[in-house]
Design a protein around this nucleic acid. Structure first.
Length: 582
RNA sequence: CGGGGCGUAGCGCAGUUUGGUCAGCGCGCUAGUUUUGGGAACUAGAGGUCGCGAGUUCAAAUCUCGCCGCCCCGACCA
C-alpha cells in the first residue's frame, strides 16, 4: 500500500475528548473517530488492526474445534423474555413499524440456545462449540476511554454445549487455552482472575486482565500463592477472628448533632475511621437486614447476597431505614436493633471499644463492644477486599492492581438450557438439558488495550501480529531519483515476498514521515534517504534499538529476518501460556 | 442516576467576570516560490448559524431562562 493511496488523517494535537493514552493515540494516528458517545468509526488503519486481531481469534478458536457462525444483531424480544433478561437495563430496545419489540444483541446465549434446541437431538452430536465475531449493542451507563467501553463494540462470543459437567469442564479448558493464546499472540500478558458473573450468570467464571494503571477494574493478587481475583469478587482471608477481645470502655451515648457520614463523625469525635463500625440497612428479598463493616471498609453487595442466599440485595430507602432504626438516616447502629437480623464482617469480630450509630437522631455510642452490647446473628466475609488484606488461600497479603478486562469465560451449566427447554437425548435414553459454557473476548477493546500497554512518547508500538502494516518504507525525498529507486525496490521486493508493507511516498518533509511512522507504530521501519546514493538504506525497529545501515540488495532479506523473529517471539509467548497450567 | 467541567473554523485554544472597540490566535488546509534526515520558510488565500431556542437590550460569543450534546469522577457493568 502506498501512503498516497491510504486514508490516515493524523493529528498533531490531541482532541480534547480523550483522556486515556490509547484513546489519544488512536485518535491522533487516524485509527478511530468518534461519532457519538461510545460510538466510533474504525478508519482504515484501525480496521486493519481489528481484522488482524479477528484473524488470530479465528485461528485459535478453530484450532480448538470451535466453528464460526453469525447470529443476528436484531433479536426478537421473546427470546430475551424466555430467560427474563428482557429486563436488563443495558439492552437497547426498539420497535418495528408493527410495534413488535426487539433488542440489539448484547450477548447471545438465548439465540444460540434456540439454535441448538431446534436442531440438536442426540448426545452423538456433542460436544458442540459455536462462535461468532460480531458487533454488540449495550446501552452502557457510562461509555469510557474511546473504544475501551463503547455502546457498540466488536466481540468474539463462543458457546459450548456438552452432555455433562465433566465435558463442559473440558470445553472450558480448551477455551481458556484458546483465549490465553489469542491474547499472547496479540503481544499482551493477561492474568486470569476469579470474577463476578453479572448479567451472564453461572457459578464459575474467570476474567482475563491486562494490567494497566488506566484500567477500570481492580485486581487483587497474592504474590505468595498467586491467588488473583477481581475486587468485586475477591475473598478476604480470615485472621485473628472469632475471639473477641474485651474492651476497656463503658458504653456511652454521645450527642453528634448532624454528624451522619463516617467522615463527619470521625472528625467530630476525633476518631479514626477504623474505630467506627458502619451499619448499613439493606433489603434482601422481602427481609430487611443490618450489615456491619469497619468504618473505613466498603460492603460488597454480591458477597452479602450470597451469604443470605438471595439473588441480590439493595440499600434500603430512607423510609425503611427510619422505621427500622427509629432515627433519621445516618445514625443506624446495631445496639437495640431488635427486629432485624444483624450480619457482620469477620473483621468486626476483632474490634473493641468502637463507635456505632445510636438509632437515635443526632447521637452515637462510643465504647461499644460485641456480645456485651449487642449480638451478631451471622458472620461472614462481606466487605470489598483492598490493598494489604489477608490472602484467602495462604498467609500472604493481597496487592491491588489496576487492569483492563479483555475477556471473560463462564461455566453456565444448565442455566440457559433449562430456562429455554433445550434438551438432548443421552446414551442412557434420558432427556437432559445441555451443559453450557460461554466465552467472550473484546476485539475492539483489544484495539485500545494493546497501545495502552505498548506506547512511548512518540506514539504507539504495535506488536507485529496485529500491526496495521508490518513494515513501513520511508521515502524521504520523493524528488530524488536514487531514493525513489531504492524505496521502490525494497517496497516491491517485500510485497512479492508476502510482507504487508506501506510505502510512504507522500510529498512531505522527512520529519513528517518520521513522526507519522512513529505515531502509527509500524514495527519495522526502512529509511530510504541520503544513504541511497551509496546504495544503502537503514532498517530500524520501532520498539527501539539501533538503525542498521544495509546494502540495498540485502535489505529485504534483513527485514524478513527481523519480521520472522518478531513473530517467533509472539509464538513462543503463546506456547508458554498454553502449556503453563490451565 | 449523583457530582464536576466543557461546547467559538478540521484540531488545539483566547475572548464571556465588566454587553459595543469582536469574529481572533496557533496548527492544519489551498495556490505560488524556495526547501528536503525528526512535525520547513515566505507571500497570497479559503474556512465560523460563537451547540440550539426563547428572552432582556439601541446593541448579545458575553446577561437571563429552557433544551441538546460531549468529557471526567462516582454509582452500575460481560
Amino acid at each position: 500500500m502506498r501512503a498516497t493511496q491510504l486514508f490516515f488523517p493524523t493529528l498533531r494535537e490531541v482532541p480534547s475528548e480523550a483522556e486515556m493514552i490509547s484513546h489519544k493515540l488512536l485518535l491522533r494516528g487516524g485509527f478511530i473517530r468518534r461519532v457519538g458517545a461510545g460510538i466510533y468509526d474504525y478508519l482504515p488503519l484501525g480496521y486493519r488492526v481489528i481484522k488482524r486481531i479477528e484473524r488470530i481469534v479465528r485461528e485459535e478458536m478453530d484450532a480448538q474445534g470451535a466453528q464460526e457462525l453469525l447470529m443476528p444483531m436484531l433479536i426478537p424480544a421473546e427470546l430475551y423474555q424466555e430467560t427474563g433478561r428482557w429486563q436488563e437495563d443495558v439492552l437497547f430496545r426498539l420497535k418495528d413499524r408493527a410495534d413488535r419489540e426487539y433488542a440489539l444483541g448484547f450477548t447471545h446465549e438465548e439465540v444460540i440456545t434456540d439454535i441448538v434446541r431446534r436442531d440438536v437431538r442426540s448426545y452423538r452430536e456433542l460436544p458442540l462449540n459455536l462462535y461468532q465475531i460480531q458487533t454488540k449493542g449495550r446501552d452502557e451507563p457510562r461509555p469510557r476511554g474511546g473504544v475501551v467501553r463503547g455502546r457498540e463494540f466488536i466481540m468474539l462470543d463462543a458457546y459450548s454445549f456438552d452432555r455433562s459437567y465433566e465435558d463442559m469442564d473440558l470445553a472450558y479448558e480448551k477455551m481458556r487455552t484458546a483465549f490465553s493464546r489469542i491474547i499472547a499472540r496479540c503481544g499482551l500478558d493477561a492474568i486470569v482472575v476469579e470474577a463476578e458473573s453479572g448479567a451472564i450468570g453461572g457459578k464459575e467464571n474467570e476474567e482475563f486482565m491486562i494490567l494497566a494503571d488506566s484500567g477500570e477494574d481492580t485486581v487483587l493478587r497474592c504474590a505468595n500463592c498467586g491467588y488473583a481475583a477481581n475486587a468485586e469478587r475477591c475473598e478476604v482471608g480470615r485472621r485473628d477472628a472469632g475471639r473477641p477481645r474485651v474492651g476497656k470502655q463503658d458504653l456511652r451515648l454521645v450527642d453528634t448533632p448532624g454528624q451522619r457520614t463516617i467522615e463527619e463523625v470521625t472528625q467530630f469525635l476525633g476518631k479514626r475511621p477504623e474505630e467506627l463500625v458502619k451499619t448499613l440497612i439493606y433489603k434482601a428479598g422481602d427481609r430487611v437486614i443490618a450489615a456491619l463493616v469497619r468504618g473505613d471498609r466498603d460492603l460488597n453487595e454480591s458477597k452479602l447476597a450470597r451469604l443470605l442466599e438471595v439473588k441480590r440485595v439493595e440499600m434500603a430507602d430512607a423510609e425503611t431505614i427510619e422505621s427500622v432504626t427509629g432515627a433519621e438516616v445516618g445514625f443506624a447502629g446495631p445496639i437495640g436493633l431488635n427486629n432485624v437480623k444483624i450480619i457482620a464482617d469477620w473483621e468486626v469480630a476483632s474490634m473493641t471499644d468502637f463507635v456505632v450509630g445510636a438509632n437515635k437522631t443526632d447521637a452515637h455510642y462510643v465504647g461499644a463492644n460485641l456480645d456485651r452490647d449487642f449480638k451478631v446473628d451471622l458472620w461472614g466475609d462481606i466487605r470489598i477486599a483492598s490493598e494489604g488484606d489477608p490472602c484467602p488461600r495462604c498467609s500472604g497479603t493481597l496487592n491491588s492492581l489496576r487492569a483492563i478486562e479483555i475477556a471473560h469465560i463462564f461455566k453456565l451449566g444448565t442455566l440457559y438450557s433449562e430456562a429455554m427447554g433445550a434438551k438432548f437425548l443421552d446414551s442412557d435414553g434420558r432427556e437432559k438439558p445441555f451443559v453450557m459454557g460461554c466465552y467472550g473476548i473484546g476485539v475492539s477493546r483489544m484495539l485500545a488495550a494493546i497501545p495502552e500497554v505498548f506506547n512511548d512518547a512518540d506514539g504507539m508500538i504495535w506488536p507485529i501480529s496485529v500491526a496495521p502494516f508490518e513494515v513501513v518504507v520511508l521515502l524521504l525525498n520523493p524528488e530524488d531519483d536514487q531514493q525513489c529507486n531504492a524505496a521502490a525496490r525494497v517496497y516491491e521486493d517485500l510485497q512479492l515476498r508476502g510482507v504487508d508493507v506501506l510505502l510512504d511516498d507522500r510529498d512531505e518533509r522527512p520529519g513528517v514521515k518520521f513522526k507519522d511512522a512513529d505515531l502509527i507504530g509500524i514495527p519495522i521501519q526502512v529509511v530510504c534517504g541520503r544513504l541511497a546514493s551509496e546504495g544503502k538504506v537503514e532498517v530500524k525497529l520501532r520498539a527501539g534499538g539501533d538503525k542498521e545501515q544495509i546494502d540495498l540488495g540485502a535489505a529485504p532479506s534483513r527485514v524478513i529476518q527481523l519480521r520472522e523473529s518478531l513473530y517467533q517471539r509472539l509464538e513462543e509467548k503463546a506456547d508458554a501460556v498454553s502449556v503453563r497450567r490451565t
